[in-house]
Design a protein around this nucleic acid. Structure first.
Length: 467
RNA sequence: GGUGAGGUGGCAGAGCGGCUAUGCGUUCGCCUGCAAAGCGAAUCUAUAGGGGUUCGAAUCCCUUCCUCACCUCCA
């Protein structure tokens, strides 16, 4: 599998020989997550599912930044401790992302639980004179890392010329960044240099090194983290270890709204909670995967509405397959279907192997859906054929992290009873009573589709946007 | 100002030297007691503008214009 590596500016073969270690920069827990966070996380979740489906062992670490000025400010406003704020938003994170059917990472390390590791790292940097202590903290000396800028392709001179860097008299160089900041208030921890808090970037260095070691396979995050966050992580980590930090740097494009980046500062965010309410998990996942991960994607209601249509086809397909009745398989048809399925599977894998091209993979998945719906439309779906298709269908569904609403056995029993009664009424041409039953069934979230020979039923996910 | 990524049919979105994806939309059919869903057919012949290179370019080169992101916290 090839993945575009921001560092080298080209696609690189992913080394899977010893499993794949992934570190994803997670969220700062000071507010609810929004669909921008969701996109990045869904992309990585899907990547992980794909690798695992090929029997590759994945070790997936995603951090929570739980010490940060924004958290502290929020705590001050609310009159509670920072810990109260961070734990509140960590649980809100899990609530949202569990609903989005995102698999739990192997670990969610928190900055506050790795203070010792960060201090140890800073000590070494100080010993090597790569960092220095100033009056208000410990700083990393950018000039001591000759490769600074290699990820973001920035030249130190340009950065200085850009002069958007805050002027701080206590720093030797305006580009130097904090490893440790002295603090008069909580939260703070003791360190050899004084009470304080860690800088932002150091946690990811400490935690990724601790849980994944050096030179792990993929380090990821949103594009906006390339500079300065990832650049600084590299500077710290490589100065500390003397080793390459990560093999591949994978960055996910921004979610925009009306062509502008969605962000807290612009106040144009759509929270995970909101989009779940309005569109539900499957629509959101398909939407997030419908553009190449490296490019921006625009949050467009028209686009989302279109996705509903596509999702209905998937639901239809599932129920056609699930409810197919026994019958004799037509050998020619079976052969054709096999060919189509193998081709779609190959297309699916080829697409993902080529820099994780999910829009193309989604296309392959929809070919499977279309094929099944076609056969069903011709009333030619039989159990053995459905089982064959189901194998491919469910495999792809699992990788994409989609979930069709299913019914309980009890619901199923009730339904079949009702449908039989309705069929009887229809035979007697008593349509008003038959329609009453259809209405009753519909209130259970079940839609009926009358085929020539039988009535197909399916449970449709309730989508907020449809009212 | 610097750096990076882009500009493809009504919309979304692949392709990245020749075989002109795909999806949605729209129109018309099939099916139905009516629906709904599904299916079929048709529709759209697109590649920001201008130069090149080539037998041949959306794909390579040059140039102009435009958009976005990063250069401060940000997924």
């Amino acid at each position: 599998m090839k993945i575009f590596d921001t560092m080298s500016g080209s696609e690189k073969e992913l080394d899977t020989s010893r499993g794949v270690r992934i570190y994803l920069c997670g969220v700062t827990v000071y507010d609810d997550s929004h669909i921008g966070h969701a996109r990045t996380i869904i992309v990585f979740d899907t990547l992980r599912r794909y690798l695992q489906s090929h029997g590759i062992k994945v070790r997936f670490i995603q951090n929570f930044t739980d010490v940060d000025d924004k958290i502290i400010n929020r705590a001050r406003i609310d009159g509670v401790s920072a810990e109260v704020i961070s734990s509140k938003y960590i649980s809100s994170y899990f609530k949202g992302f569990d609903s989005l059917n995102v698999m739990r990472a192997d670990m969610y390390p928190k900055a506050t639980e790795h203070i010792t590791e960060m201090i140890d790292l800073i000590k070494i940097l100080l010993d090597r004179k790569i960092a220095y202590v100033s009056t208000n903290g410990v700083y990393f000396s950018v000039s001591k890392f000759s490769e600074y800028g290699k990820l973001s392709k920035k030249k130190i001179d340009d950065l200085i010329a850009g002069a958007r860097v805050e002027v701080d008299e206590t720093k030797k160089d305006p580009l130097d960044f904090a490893l440790w900041k002295f603090a008069d208030d909580e939260p703070r921890w003791p360190s050899p240099w004084g009470l304080g808090r860690p800088g932002w970037h150091i946690e990811c260095s400490a935690m990724s090194l601790k849980y994944l070691g050096n030179d792990f396979e993929i380090h990821g995050g949103g594009r906006d983290l390339i500079f300065p966050h990832h650049e600084n992580e590299i500077a710290q980590s490589e100065s500390y270890s003397g080793c390459n930090f990560a093999k591949i740097w994978m960055h996910v494009g921004m979610v925009t709204i009306n062509g502008e980046k969605m962000s807290k500062s612009l106040g144009n965010t759509k929270s995970v909670d909101f989009v779940l309410q309005k569109w539900g998990p499957n629509i959101i996942r398909i939407f997030c995967l419908s553009g190449h991960y490296s490019k921006p994607i625009d949050y467009s209601e028209d686009q989302l509405r279109e996705t509903i249509t596509r999702w209905r086809q998937v639901e239809n397909c599932y129920y056609e397959l699930f409810l197919a009745e026994e019958g004799v398989i037509n050998p020619t048809l079976a052969r054709d279907v096999e060919t189509t399925l193998r081709a779609a599977e190959k297309e699916f894998d080829d697409a993902l192997n080529s820099d994780f091209n999910t829009p193309l993979a989604l296309g392959a998945f929809f070919k499977v859906v279309k094929t099944a719906n076609q056969i069903a439309g011709e009333e030619a779906m039989v159990r053995p054929l459905a089982d064959i298709i189901l194998l491919t269908f469910e495999k792809m569904l699992e990788i994409l992290g989609l979930k069709v609403s299913r019914v309980t056995d009890e619901e199923k029993k009730t339904l079949i009873g009702l449908i039989e009664r309705r069929a009887l009424l229809r035979d007697q041409r008593n349509f008003s009573d038959a329609d009453a039953i259809r209405k009753e069934i519909s209130s259970m979230g079940i839609v009926l589709i009358d085929h020539k020979k039988k009535t197909l039923w399916m449970k449709q996910e309730r989508i907020g946007a449809e009212g």
